[in-house]
Design a binder for these strands. Sequence first.
DNA 1: CTGAAGCATTGACATTTATCAATCGTGTCT
DNA 2: AGACACGATTGATAAATGTCAATGCTTCAG
Lengths: 232, 232
Amino acid sequence: MLESHYSDIRSLEVFAAMDDDQFEALMRGSYVQNFPPQIELISEGEPSDFLHIVLSGSVDLFSSWNGRETSMATIHPISTFILAATIKDAPYLMSARTLEKSRVVLIPSQDVRAIFMRDAEFARAIVGELAQCYRTAIKSTKDLRLRTSLERLANYILRQQKRAGGSAKIELLTEKRRLASYLGMTPENLSRAFKGLVPYGVTVNGNRIHITDQEDLERFAKPSPLIDDYRT
Amino acid sequence: MLESHYSDIRSLEVFAAMDDDQFEALMRGSYVQNFPPQIELISEGEPSDFLHIVLSGSVDLFSSWNGRETSMATIHPISTFILAATIKDAPYLMSARTLEKSRVVLIPSQDVRAIFMRDAEFARAIVGELAQCYRTAIKSTKDLRLRTSLERLANYILRQQKRAGGSAKIELLTEKRRLASYLGMTPENLSRAFKGLVPYGVTVNGNRIHITDQEDLERFAKPSPLIDDYRT
DNA sequence: CTGAAGCATTGACATTTATCAATCGTGTCT
DNA sequence: AGACACGATTGATAAATGTCAATGCTTCAG
């Protein structure tokens, strides 16, 4: 693998504290590949052969059952995904597909596990990462169980606004059909939900969202750090 | 703390491999307490002062938002809970209450974090535990997103049956109102869902569930190891 | 420029789920 | 035994969400 990405990857929390030699070893065994959009990188149920890192582009994690499909999360650069399956040497619970042209690092799971056993700093870093993933999953479950679809959309908009710096005008970076799936509803209902937010100070035009009444929206959405703050 | 529980706790996967001295140190700083039923042990949002271990009885993890409440999981002996919050030194995302008279070990979170930094074996064991928790959370999200309430109930019954050894007659160990909350529905709908399963070979009488047609139920429930097998 | 493809939107309708109120059943206390 | 408390069930109704079909709007290839 080209050394040009080393520093980017190294700056990830999971790899930051580990031993130099171990990191080199990990990188030497890994591959970097470019994928076109809509390529299925992994399929749920398969053994976890590689730990993945998105360097550029974006990746959708989704799951299927009985002919239905749901989008579980979107991975943006630079981050790893399916770390838990790699560590436990267990089958993937989600499938992954590129949303756009993406550059992805593949690190053989065996190597990750071997170095996990050797390098205590690496092990500790993985603890931090997994705890984060777990807590994010719990938050997402709370979002789903405690809120209606309208409330989920309202809070999603507020989260995106925060990520974008707090401006009253933000842009949707995902297709609406995928956003609908992510929010646990149909595209038709997402359309209606956007209309349902007009009384609370939200207007939509294509990908542009305009928050005309921040206070009103927040009063309706009732965002909570225990659900909506993905950093803690 | 009394030494009589040491071996029980030590046999937990998280504590099994760690250094003897470190384990002793952890135990020396911890408390064992007996709680009556319906006591709120922790509240979401609070700082995570203690790692908890249920020795006997059972504990319900639940969350609230905007006046609504949902049961997230039930903890049975012997297991830890809220490990992620302890390790990250972050606020609890869920509240916990005893369901029955319960014996609980409280280990100061500071001690856990200190020993986590010192003992590499402990750190690795925590990785295993967190990966497990994460994967269980993902499975539960898939259950919720991909299945109707009737399907969730059907699969719940099959999981309980497996846990109970596979007999055609099993007993519900939880109140129906709490089961309803856990399955993401109202008690009224749980009643109707049980009736809705009669055509697929399930009859209910109080706490007793009788699976009269195993094949039919499985054909309807379509259980999947990627959702319903909590061990992998 | 034009047509085809694909997503988004809308309306009508069906299904699922929640809510409210009443009733039933069971166990407990006196 | 009788009264009470409490969860479970039932029925009627409302609200939320999904489905289907038709239409609108962009984008992009030819």
